[in-house]
C-alpha cells in the first residue's frame, strides 16, 4: 500500500522511456504498416518460400519431360506444358529459385564492392577518391544493358559471368550512395575516436561507419534488386541471360510466346506466356511497396511530397 501512496515522478518517467527491444519496435512498426506494405511483404514471403522449398512444392521436376508438348491447362499440369513437354507450373516455382537467387547474388556482390570502395573513398578523400569517382562516373554514363551485352558476347553467357558482370557494373550505384553518405560521417567524432584508438580500416568500415549509413543502403538495395531483375530478365528474354536448362521466368516467356497466337481459340493458351512475366511484375511491385514503406518509416517522409 505504501508504494502506491508515495508518488515518484522519476520512476514513472523511467517506466515510460524504457527502451523497447527490437522485436517490440518491429511489432509497433508492423501494426502501423499500410495495406500496400502488408501486401508486399506477404507476396515476398510467398516468393521466398517458393524459392527455398521449390522441390517440395513443385508437382514435377524442373527439367522433367512429359510426352505431350503444349498440353492445355488442367489434366495433371496446372498450367499445361511447354514446347518440349515440361510442366509449366513446376518451372515457374523453380524459376523463383533461379531468378531470385541469381539476382540476389548479383545485388549482394554489387552492395559489397560498392559499399567498401565507397567508404574507402570517403575516408581517403585524395587521389584514391578522385580515381575511383572518375572511374565510376564513366561506368555510370554507359547504359548497363549495352555494357552487359558486350561483356557477355566476349566472355560467353554463363550464369557465373552474368552474376559477376552485373555485380560489378551495378556496384557503381552503391559506390555513389555510400560515398556521399559516408563523407558526412567520416568527419564526425566517433570515427576520429576510432582512428585515434588505432582501429584498423576494416573495423572502421564495418563496425563504425556501416551501421550508421545502413538505411539508405537498404533502400538502394531494394531498388537495385528490382533493376537487376529487370536487366537479367531482359537479357534472358533475349536469350543471353540465365542459361537453359535452368528455368527462369523471362526465358519461359520467350519459349512459350508462340502460344499467344492461339488465344482466340483457347484463352488459357494466350495467358500461359504471360504468367511468368506477371510473376516478375508482381515481385517488383511488392518490393516497391515494401521499400516505399521502409523509406517512410526511416525518414519520416510526409506523404505530401512523395
Amino acid at each position: 500500500m505504501s508504494e502506491n501512496l508515495s508518488y515518484s515522478a522519476k520512476s514513472e518517467v523511467a517506466n515510460l522511456i524504457k527502451r523497447r527491444t527490437r522485436l517490440e519496435r518491429l511489432k509497433i512498426a508492423l501494426s502501423k504498416a499500410p495495406i500496400s506494405a502488408w501486401f508486399g511483404m506477404i507476396v515476398l514471403f510467398i516468393y521466398f518460400f517458393a524459392a527455398i522449398f521449390a522441390p517440395f512444392i513443385a508437382p514435377h521436376g524442373e527439367a522433367e519431360i512429359f510426352p505431350v508438348a503444349y498440353a492445355p491447362w488442367g489434366d495433371g499440369h496446372i498450367f499445361g506444358t511447354d514446347q518440349i513437354g515440361r510442366d509449366i507450373f513446376s518451372r515457374i516455382i523453380y524459376a523463383a529459385r533461379n531468378t531470385i537467387g541469381i539476382c540476389l547474388l548479383a545485388t549482394f556482390i554489387a552492395l559489397g564492392i560498392g559499399t567498401v570502395f565507397g567508404i574507402i573513398a570517403a575516408l581517403d578523400r585524395r587521389y584514391l577518391d578522385q580515381l575511383l569517382s572518375r572511374i565510376v562516373d564513366t561506368l555510370m554514363a554507359i547504359p548497363v544493358m549495352i555494357f552487359t551485352f558486350i561483356l557477355l558476347s566476349v566472355f560467353g553467357p554463363t550464369n557465373f559471368n552474368l552474376i559477376v558482370i552485373l555485380g560489378i557494373l551495378e556496384s557503381t550505384r552503391f559506390f555513389r550512395i555510400s560515398r556521399s553518405v559516408a563523407v558526412g560521417q567520416v568527419v564526425l567524432e566517433y570515427v576520429e575516436v576510432a582512428r585515434l584508438r588505432g582501429e584498423n580500416l576494416s573495423y572502421i568500415i564495418f563496425r563504425e561507419i556501416l551501421p550508421n549509413i545502413a538505411s539508405p543502403l537498404i533502400i538502394e538495395f531494394g531498388l537495385r534488386f528490382i533493376f537487376i531483375i529487370f536487366t537479367i530478365s531482359s537479357l534472358s528474354f533475349l536469350g543471353i541471360g540465365i542459361q537453359p536448362p535452368s528455368a527462369d521466368w523471362a526465358s519461359m516467356v520467350r519459349e512459350n510466346a508462340i502460344l499467344i497466337q492461339y488465344a482466340q481459340y483457347d484463352i488459357t493458351a494466350g495467358l500461359t506466356p504471360l504468367i511468368p512475366a506477371a510473376a516478375i511484375a508482381l515481385l517488383c511491385v511488392s518490393i516497391n511497396f515494401v521499400v516505399d514503406w521502409y523509406l517512410y518509416i526511416t525518414s519520416g517522409l510526409k506523404d505530401d511530397v512523395k
Binding site: I260, G270, L274, I280
Partner: peptide
C-alpha cells in the same frame, strides 16, 4: 513501371 518491357508488349499482342 514495375512490369518488364516484354510483359507490356505481349499484353498488347494478346
Amino acid at each position: 513501371v514495375s512490369s518488364p518491357e516484354f510483359f507490356t508488349a505481349y499484353i498488347f499482342i494478346l
